[in-house]
Amino acid sequence: MGSTAARVISGSELATLSHDQLVELVADVRVYARVAPEQKLRIVAALQERGESVAMTGDGVNDAPALKRAEIGIAMGVTGTDVAKEAAEMVLLDDNFATIVRAVREGRVVYANLRKFFKYILACNAGEIWTIVLAPFLGLPLPLLPIHILWINLMTDGAPGLALAIEPAEKGIMRQPPIPPDESLFARGMWQQILWIGLLMAGSCLLTQKIAIVLGWHWQTMVFTVLCYSQLFNSLALRSERQSLFSQGLVSNRLLLLTVVVSVAVQLGIIYVPALQILFRTQALGAAELMFCFAMATIVFAAVEMEKWLLRRHWLRY
């Protein structure tokens, strides 16, 4: 909006203005009094010409053209006419303007959670792909079997991803600036994060494989375990784009915590239960091997938390 003092303008004064004059003036007007229906449409058009996204509220038949022209037309559900409701994108069932604020908040939460879901799924899949593709170039044997990839995609990809989709609203979500309508879902560093998280995850797995081969450990089971647990710990770190998990608290998303705990337990069953060992072609890991897997799996979590720390201090920008 403009930097000059806010103005109040009446319908009669508005009628004397040309379209170009209105476009110039509209940024500084805060209140329009006694305007005609066609003048509402002029106001919306002038704001749009200045690059603004316009929300328009109305309840009568004469409001329909402006409701239709605005980016977001908001009709009253109780007192509004059927024509106004048909022209609007949103209908307030309680005719309470405070509901608009709650709707905007919910929309921001949904959009933020979509970004978290796609970031998690794509980063984890990138980690799997890089692990399989890079191993032959490093002179390493095939690190994972098809059944391992199938299990990871079904369990450690799907369940935490769905839990991230219902993540509660982050602190200060309504103080964030509006998202440009033409902004890509992968903007603000998201594709860079997917790339480096996937590469780091693969690097952890391949380093585990190399060390395990040198030490004579059960390297394939260890790579399988590191990849699985890396993804689970990554889901915890990706709950917020900037806020630390330790300030959010583990129990603020109980479903995600439950899926992580269950997945960790089931993975241990795959390693140590004889029937599951046969099915997944795994081998029981010793205490040192298992502890090493947990340590390697926390690398991605620590890196994501460090990135958020740098973002909070504005030492890193996307």
Rank of each mutant, 00 (worst) to 15 (best):
G77D: 11
I211M: 08
I121L: 10
P180A: 10
A187G: 13
G158K: 04
V8K: 15
I166H: 01
W191Q: 06
L311V: 13
L200W: 13
E86H: 10
A46I: 07
L138C: 01
L207R: 02
Q283W: 09
S240P: 07
K116M: 06
V104C: 15
I213L: 06
P160H: 00
P65S: 10
W130R: 02
P141Q: 12
W130G: 02
A15M: 07
A45M: 06
F224R: 13
W217N: 04
G2T: 05
K68C: 00
L285H: 13
G189D: 15
Q267R: 06
F280K: 09
K171I: 00
D59I: 01
R7Q: 15
W217K: 03
G107R: 15
L279D: 03
Q39V: 02
L206R: 03
W309G: 13
P146R: 03
L142Q: 07
I211R: 06
Q248H: 05
E38I: 06
L41H: 11
A163Q: 00
T81H: 00
F294I: 06
L290T: 12
D182V: 08
A112R: 15
V304K: 07
S18T: 13
G203W: 03
V44T: 09
L238E: 12
L276A: 08
A87L: 14
A295G: 12
Q176G: 03
V133A: 14
E52R: 11
G58Y: 09
R281V: 01
G216W: 03
G161T: 03
S18Q: 08
A98L: 11
R254D: 04
D82K: 02
W315D: 13
W151P: 00
L311E: 15
A45N: 12
I152K: 07
R281I: 00
A275D: 15
A287K: 05
T57H: 01
S204G: 10
H148S: 05
K116E: 10
G107A: 15
I299E: 01
